[in-house]
Design a binder for these strands. Sequence first.
RNA 1: GGGCCAUUAGCUCAGUUGGUUAGAGCACGGUCCUGAUAAGACCGGGGUCUGUGGUUCGAGUCCACAAUGGCCCA
Length: 1037
Amino acid sequence: MFHEVNSKISFPQLEKDILRYWKEHNIFNKSVGVREGAKRYVFYEGPPTANGSPGIHHVISRLFKDAVCRYKTMKGYYVPRKAGWDTHGLPVELEVEDTLGFTNKAQIEEYGIAQFNQKCRESVFKYIKEWEAMTERIGYWLDMENPYITLDNGYIESCWWAIKQLWDKGLIYQGYKVTPHCPRCGTSLSSHEVALGYRDDAVDPSVYIKFKLDEMSLVHSEITDRQLVFKLGGLFSHKPAFFLAWTTTPWTLPGNTALAVAPDVEYAVVELEDECLILAKALLEHVGLDSYEVVETLKGNELVNATYEPLFNPHKYGVERRRPQTYFSPGEMSVPRILEVQEPKEDLTYHVITTDFVSIEEGTGIVHVAPAYGEVDFEAMLSNEPKVDFVHMVNLEGKLTGSYPFSGKFVKDADPLILEDLKSRGLLYRSEKITHTYPFCWRCESPLLYYAKEAWYIKTTAIKDRLIRGNKEINWYPDYIKYGRFGDWLENNVDWAVSRERYWGTPLNIWRCESCGNLECVGSVEELKAKPKLTVGSYQLEAFRDLHRPYVDEITFACPKCDGTMRRVPDVIDCWFDSGAMPIAQWHYPFENKEQFEQNFPADFICEAIDQTRGWFYSLHAISTLLFDRPCFKNVACLGHIVDAQGEKMSKSKNNVVDPWLVVDNYGADVLRWHLLTAAPGENVHRFSTQMVADTMRGDLLTLWNTYSFFVLYANIDHFVPQETTPSLSPSHLDNWIISELNRLIADMTRALDNYDLTSAARRAGDFVDELSNWYVRRSRRRFWKSEEDADKLAAYNTLYQCLVTLSKLLAPLVPFTAEEIYRNLVCSADSQAPESVHLTDFPLANEAKIDDRLSAEVSLATKIASLGRAARAKAGIKVRQPLDKAIITLTQESEMDALRKFASDVMDEINVKELKFVKDMLSEDMPHYAVANDEKHWVAVDTRLSPQLKAEGVSREIVRHIQTMRRAAGFDVADHIITYYQGEEQIIKVMKDFADYIKQETLSRELIEGLSPEGAYVEQHRISNSDVLLAVSKVD
RNA sequence: GGGCCAUUAGCUCAGUUGGUUAGAGCACGGUCCUGAUAAGACCGGGGUCUGUGGUUCGAGUCCACAAUGGCCCA
């Protein structure tokens, strides 16, 4: 006996029972364990940043990963799944800063790095609990007992090893580079972090500034026409000339050290009432000049080496002026290391230079260059001869230094003061506001400042070709990512800025001599411990037991060159490096588990959302290529993001975030899984709302459940026992058909799943469920009801049984709970030898020999004709319940007639006619006594004439239907026998008598008794075919 | 500002190499069917296939540009 199945299913309740079963019987570990020794399928879990509760967008990638791993397990692979947690990084620090009420780094240092990092550690573990609960609840099978955690010492040591490898290859360098800097967080942001925070509605000043030309300098300029030099010099001596430049960042103006022009663009010298302006001729209108006279035009390159007066001479305000010196050392890249301090100069002037980044689309065609605050500016400083000066008057908190009138102000607050100052000196030509795109810190929303700082880099550009070549070996899903988004990213590779001036992260394992500047990279704890004159400072207990700051900061040793003190550089490593190093670091490779590492490298499969193209997908690929010169994953699936029902991004500020717990508690994990799988292909953007999930529940899953519930109901009544072997060819066309469809389904799903196309696989299964329920079961009902225990009935049971059991296996990777319930009830309760879980079984293999295309075509024709027949009846307004004499069907091909003869009884049943006639001629719309319906190929006409006999038969069916409804209303079981009582008009009584056998059989009535019903019977009054009847039913014990 | 992806019925999606009248499911209205069913059947309303140009005998499909949304990069 199977356990009873209620058609009113609560998925959440069911799932809780299944979860308990899995836990108690250790099913996950068994499912992995039974495949031990088989071919490995290597999966890498992308570690979630555990700095917040899991959202619906986390659920989708986790369920895709789960489905693939479950599928591969059922296909016979050994698929261990090690969980991982990304625990370092700025997001975690910010969360802690928030709870402590901190707003800057100084407060952290005051509080104590040790205590601060301890808070970070606790904060991360708090969220891990939530993640574990959600992971388990949605049925994502993952080994959470042995996860890799990026904060572990072993993990950190593996990262150190990796950095050391790169160091030894000369791939790590320290350079000045202009990086996006968050003044609040006090750190540089990586490019992927910057990308998170662009806003296209940033309002900034849009100002035109006048830079006073030194008219004497025209002599040294590149103007070849000496006459012209004299002419302009004369003019400018009584009407001063200014270069007009445009900027949206006035705070960078004190850092201006050059003006850049485009070499081939024409510049105009414009004479106004009491001054002259120089700007690109094409932009005169744009700038808003109305009455002016163009005195002269010059090519940009003629202006080179003309000089102008600084807006703010740095020496007047106590700010240093520096000049770059390139420092070379053997075997290393040439990178600017030294910015030499320049002597103060009273009459300081700067040069006009040419660059290739001057736009004549906007501004004035003259670009203000501040090397400290722009990447291109910085590059221009280095590449120009003579070198351009470097003036830096903003500290790491984004406040101006020196003794300017606006010193101490935050840059954005200084903007208006600077403009005020310039205006008072007549140097502000025009001032407006502009709305444009500007990057903000993705966590704290401060405006980012482009800022020249020292930072440590990995020279990924050195292996760019290898990165591109490795990518050719990777299969991307969807495939256009490969040479599109990811390929483009690799083509435009820039060096990886890998250091962060923060606290909670993997410490950068580079030590520098305080005396001579000698640098050493330390690749392991052991290596560090062996250093000469090692001291651990004030943290005697913690040193080496915890490799984090601040303990590691105090570990010093003697410089091998000068015997000075080697002290670690203060930076920590970008947390993307942590996660990208997981192929090695999850095993503490190479310090231990060498075999584990080798067996699990590279991965067969990784899967994350599309935004990881430049995140984890890249950091994995880069590190793997840097260390091993090969890619570390073979297949990668990119999922689209989840947006709200309106297609807008989910965000806390829009208040449109959906809590996955609510969905799972109300509808169940399988419903959510099924929805996310079937609603749209994985790579699409997914619109999501709980209403959509509710709709999904009423679809395929409920139909499947009802089919299953139907089977169990009747199988139990008949004490059906599944047979070991099913007859190879059943005499029923219907059975052969659904078995054919089943095998086709297996083949299709296997193909789709092998191709990581879970959506097609799931939708295909949904189609099959529909066919099974709405044709196979619908057409087979009488075979289950009939009282004889014949071979046909057994064949029907066996066929449906086989379909449901196979379906449970096919669906197991996708909806693991529902599949488990069906499997356990249908298989385990009948066969004690069977595996105790569907997830321990093998994925079904298609038997191609049983796939019969012709049979498929025949059934689809039969359903088509049945539809047309019902449409014809509807046109005539005759209920399907009313039997009719015949239907005439036009078929043009002989094969179609054969097909319909095969399924004639089904079609006759569906249309409720006693005979089918096939003809080859087209029928016409207006046949007398017939109702007609047609599609492009077929015509069906039903005979609408009702003989008294047919009418009586119709009445009998009407009576049967009422009794059936009453049985249910009275709460009888489907197998209960009853006695039916009736009183009524003569016409009804006649039908009751004439069709007594039929009525008894259909309603399981032992007797039909004319007369009063006994006490306690269930009674209803009905009016059938204009006659009254009083019906009553009572159960027979 | 640049790149990639998407845009088809009220909603979610199919639409093969260009080829009759563009489909399905949900939702809605009507009718029917019903000893598994919260199911199902039939009929109906609802589409300038985002827009504008172009290629072609013929474009939802190919090309260009634009709009909107998403992602990525600046």
